[in-house]
Design a protein around this nucleic acid. Sequence first.
DNA 1: CTAAGGACCTGTCGGC
DNA 2: TGCCGACAGGTCCTTA
Length: 270
Amino acid sequence: MPELPEVETTKRGISPHIKNNRVTSVQLRHSQLRWPIPHSIVSDLKQQLCLDVTRRAKYLLLHFKSGVLIIHLGMSGRLSIVESSQQPKKHDHVDIFFDSGICLRYTDPRRFGCILWTDNLSEHRLLVNLGPEPLTSAFDTDYLYQCSREKKVTVKQLIMNSAVVVGVGNIYASESLFMAGINPQRQASRISKKRYELLVAAIKSVLQQSIKVGGTTLKDFLTAEGKPGYFSQQLDVYGREGEPCRRCARSLKKVVIMQRSTFYCSQCQR
DNA sequence: CTAAGGACCTGTCGGC
DNA sequence: TGCCGACAGGTCCTTA
């Protein structure tokens, strides 16, 4: 489900409902996610005040006095705010109840996500090797260009490598490369700095635009019937194999790069 | 060190 | 209608 914009939108959606609220109890129904959910969170979280909700890459971080709850939504995960009385459905694996009477509910059919607890966030193995956030100034042309040198992978693989830059998923990798006019199969090391400048701008633009759409879609997580997961949005190439390029009308192509579907226009992207 | 492939899991869709 | 394979928005871990 989540690309970076969905995770950011989820953060903004849940934050007002749980920040500065106190956990009353935690219910684990199915703790076998990508890694087992540590059962200790049931007691660790009890009576604790949620101090803040932040995001790093696609990890949502719930900060408490004694530690941080790390939540990743994997491919199919979702967080929602529901009334405490609302009965769980099939894939609702975890409920965190708050003293305000609401419940933070974790839903994940494929269970590729994770929920972990740490008292030392800055040294956590999942976060310690991550590259810069794409929407910060640390992610710029010089940086990405330097990363690309000596690399033997395609440019799509480069921008999807979380050690290089975080938050560029399969959809927005294709979309960014289309906007920058770069063929996703091109070797990362054989692209000029000038073109990396276009790519950096494209990545920022595509992500920012999508977060903006999510932000406008987002109303109240508690009462909104819509799924906070995926907003229908205007995609230029992703999932549009055989359809006409919006720029030149030529039929869009699909290739597989590292077992992931990749869409592009062979005319506009070189 | 880098790069490629496997692994995890359920749901949905298209074709026969 | 039913079955079967392909595929799905992620990413860590193992292997070469």
